[in-house]
Design a protein around this nucleic acid. Structure first.
Lengths: 156, 156
DNA sequence: CTGCCTGCAAACTCTTTGCACGAAT
DNA sequence: ATTCGTGCAAAGAGTTTGCAGGCAG
């Protein structure tokens, strides 16, 4: 999906919801798509400001839930205080597990197709209606095993 | 494991680590074991104070990591801002998944033996050394499906 | 006695919110 | 013209930390 096509999808999502397509929202959206990997609200703010320097932290926080609801963005919570986000990859990331490096907080994602099966099993056992599931593995880099620290981890 | 036996384990853990077995730490530990289900730091503080009213919030927060490290307590992060804890059940809860009710934040736990298998698979694929894994399913109570809200959820 | 632990309160981090101005429809 | 959206700064929630005094070993 090209950047322009994605932006059009976001525009139409906003319109459909009766929300306005402001420059700030579009700048934040473009910034989100420009991120290569997972990013935090603060990183998103920095990048969005390089596109439109009038973007404020408050608007970033107000726009994140909108983008998440539009399914063009996914929220990833690895339990480190701050939330991470990532642009969706055209349906391929419905069932993904995260592998988090304990040393540098880098997030890898791999597919885990059995997760939905598991959610359904659970629904039968407990009489619940599953909405979502997440599977996360915390791990050390191999570099950590050899050198005692993660190469991506700058000073502590 | 009886409460006294558990307390002895905690005492010896403290000693082994060169930490002191203060009244506050023991009161907090007893309070943790007395909780029937998952609890928050604040709930633990309340209960610990009913045992020893000199216990402060700071000491609770300082003691939680110690108990977690001793493996007598487990930390459960369901991504709701505050962390939950639970006393360990003698080895049976090494591989458990959490099912969280979206409406009342109640946490159910069920065994998920395939998690360790998954962690190992991941370690092979990515060349990482897995340390822990967590699997969580977010779901609605059946009561929610029928009445539109969770019975455990008081006013909103 | 020595120094680890404690309570208190202030600090911190991330996120949310009230308010008056500004811009999209 | 209307509203909805915005930036700013203050508030909020949960957790952490500096400090002076207190108790375990």
């Amino acid at each position: 999906m090209s950047l322009t096509a994605a932006r059009d999808k976001f525009r139409s999502f906003l319109t459909r919801k009766g929300l306005r397509a402001t420059n700030q929202r579009l700048a934040i959206f473009d910034a989100a798509l420009a991120q290569g990997e997972h990013f935090t609200a603060e990183q998103l703010l920095d990048y969005a400001r390089s596109i439109d320097d009038s973007v404020s932290r408050a608007t970033v926080y107000r726009t994140l839930p909108i983008m998440t609801e539009s399914a063009l963005l996914r929220e990833v919570d690895i339990g480190t205080g701050e939330k991470y986000y990532r642009a969706s990859r055209e349906g391929t990331d419905v069932q993904v597990a995260q592998v988090v490096c304990i040393d540098c907080d880098r997030i890898f994602e791999i597919s885990a197709p059995f997760m939905s099966w598991y959610g359904n099993t659970v629904s039968q056992k407990l009489g619940l209606t599953p909405v979502s599931q997440r599977l996360q593995v915390s791990a050390h880099c191999n570099a950590w095993r050899e050198t005692g620290h993660c190469p991506r981890r700058e000073a502590t």
